[in-house]
């Protein structure tokens, strides 16, 4: 399955970049001019380093979704079907990585599609899309 991976050896958590990855994701993928709505969020720690909130396509949210709106596509990526979603936000509450996102202006939540758009704009080459094995379904 395709998974977005970040290398913190390379990412400088926005100290020398303008969070290009977030901005690009928000604008190109979700069509909003607001990096807070990106499917990945890079946070800098004050004492150096940082952390990224990003989806590893673990599939936990598929298990809890009551309307079968979440499914893996051919690439193994967890995709949301907006027509089926009932806006219950269980996917958000049950994602241990806090990677299921919600824009207050939309009723349907959104998440990373492993599309790689952000990868291309990172000036430090910190992001990549990798092919990893799909994890087993968990009972949640």
């Amino acid at each position: 399955m395709k998974q977005l991976v970040i290398d913190f050896q390379k990412c400088d958590a926005g100290r020398n970049c303008n969070h290009e990855c977030e901005m690009e994701c928000a604008v190109k993928v979700f069509k909003v001019d607001d990096p807070a709505q990106a499917a990945l969020q890079i946070k800098a720690y004050e004492d150096g380093g940082g952390k990224a909130v990003l989806c590893d396509q673990c599939g936990d949210c598929i298990v809890v979704c009551p309307s079968e709106a979440l499914k893996r596509n051919k690439l193994g990526v967890v995709m949301i079907d907006k027509q089926l979603c009932v806006g219950c936000y269980m996917c958000i509450g049950f994602c241990e990585k806090d990677a299921f996102m919600r824009n207050p202006d939309w009723i349907v939540p959104h998440k990373c599609t492993s599309c790689g758009v952000c990868v291309k704009v990172c000036p430090h080459g910190a992001l990549s899309i990798q092919d990893v094995p799909e994890p087993a379904v968990r009972i949640i």
């Binding site: 219950c88 936000y89 269980m90 958000i92 509450g93 049950f94 241990e96 919600r102 207050p104 949640i140």
Partner: peptide
């Protein structure tokens, strides 16, 4: 918005 935030908080609590 209040409903969304309250709901998500509760789902996390269950988890």
């Amino acid at each position: 918005e209040t409903i969304a935030k309250t709901g998500i908080k509760y789902h996390k609590e269950i988890r």
